Amino acid sequence: MFEYHGWITLRSTAEALDDEPPLRLGEIEALVDESADYALMDLQPMNGTYYIHLGGNPNRRGQHGRAVIDLFAEVGRLAPGSYGLLYVYDNEDPEHMLSFRVHRLVRGTVTEHADHLLSPVIPTLEDADMS
């Protein structure tokens, strides 16, 4: 299982004020459209700012899982002032099979971090299988 939930606040640069320089919205929309085939994903404006929200739960990480993480990196390249978080739980990752990982987008760079709020999955979220 590969579960993920995330959001990105879109900003063209860290200094961006009043849409200057303009957001590369067409390119970002194309990225979202490419990734929306097996996911909850939307790009919406609110109060003058655009946001991406995403979530999904495919059976396996496969190519889709890598694409979701790559989406964060590509948004960072197109809009380096953007910021957001992506929580990922991949129970087939041998190094992290019982924990969430957090991918953080800040100033165009995506970094991966340990999660301490939902991890370890057992016993934080689930009981151990006693059968």
Score class of each variant (00 low, 15 high):
Leu105Phe: 05
Gly81Ile: 05
Gly108Lys: 00
His53Leu: 14
Thr109Cys: 10
Arg24Ser: 11
Trp7Ala: 14
His113Asn: 07
Ala36Met: 07
Leu43Gln: 04
His5Pro: 01
Leu10Phe: 05
Ile52Ser: 00
Asp33Ala: 15
Glu95Val: 13
Tyr83Arg: 13
Glu74Cys: 04
Ala67Ile: 00
Phe2Glu: 06
Leu31Phe: 03
Asp115Arg: 00
Pro45Ala: 14
Val88Gly: 01
Leu31Gly: 04
Ser131Ile: 09
Ser131Trp: 05
Arg107Thr: 11
Val121His: 05
Asp42Pro: 01
Ala36Asn: 11
His116Trp: 09
Ala67Glu: 12
Gly62Arg: 06
Met130Lys: 13
Glu27Asn: 07
Met41Thr: 09
Met46His: 13
Glu3Thr: 15
Leu25Thr: 10
Tyr89Val: 09
Met41Leu: 14
Arg24Met: 13
Val68Pro: 00
Trp7Tyr: 15
Val68Gly: 01
Leu86Glu: 01
Val75Thr: 02
Asp93Tyr: 00
Gln44Thr: 15
Thr49Gly: 03
Glu92Cys: 09
Thr124Gly: 03
Asp90Gln: 08
Ala39Pro: 00
Gly55Ile: 01
Thr13His: 11
Leu31Glu: 07
Leu125Arg: 05
Leu118Phe: 13
Gly65Pro: 02
Ala79Tyr: 00
His53Tyr: 13
Ile69Glu: 13
Ala73Lys: 09
Leu43Phe: 08
Arg107His: 15
Met46Ile: 06
Gln63Val: 09
Arg77Lys: 13
Asp19His: 12
Glu112Gly: 06
Thr9Lys: 12
Arg24Gln: 15
Val88Ser: 03
Asp19Glu: 15
Glu34Trp: 02
Leu25Met: 13
Glu3Gly: 14
Ala16Gly: 06
Asp70Ala: 15
Thr13Tyr: 08
Pro22His: 06
Asn57Pro: 00
Leu118Ile: 04
Arg77Glu: 13
Gly6Met: 07
Tyr89Phe: 14
Ala14Pro: 04
Ile8Tyr: 05
Leu105Thr: 04
Ser82His: 04
Phe72Cys: 05
Ser99Arg: 12
Asp70Arg: 12
Asn91Lys: 12
Asp115Cys: 07
Leu23Glu: 02
Leu10Asp: 04
Phe2Pro: 03
Ser12Cys: 11
Leu71Ser: 03
Gly84Pro: 01
Leu71Val: 09
Glu27Arg: 08
His64Ser: 05
Glu15His: 12
Ala36Ile: 04
Asn47Ser: 12
Ser131Gly: 15
His113Gln: 10
Asp37Ser: 11
Glu20Pro: 02
Asp37Trp: 11
Ala128Asn: 09
Leu118Arg: 12
Leu78Asn: 04
Pro80Val: 08
Thr111Leu: 07
Thr49Cys: 09
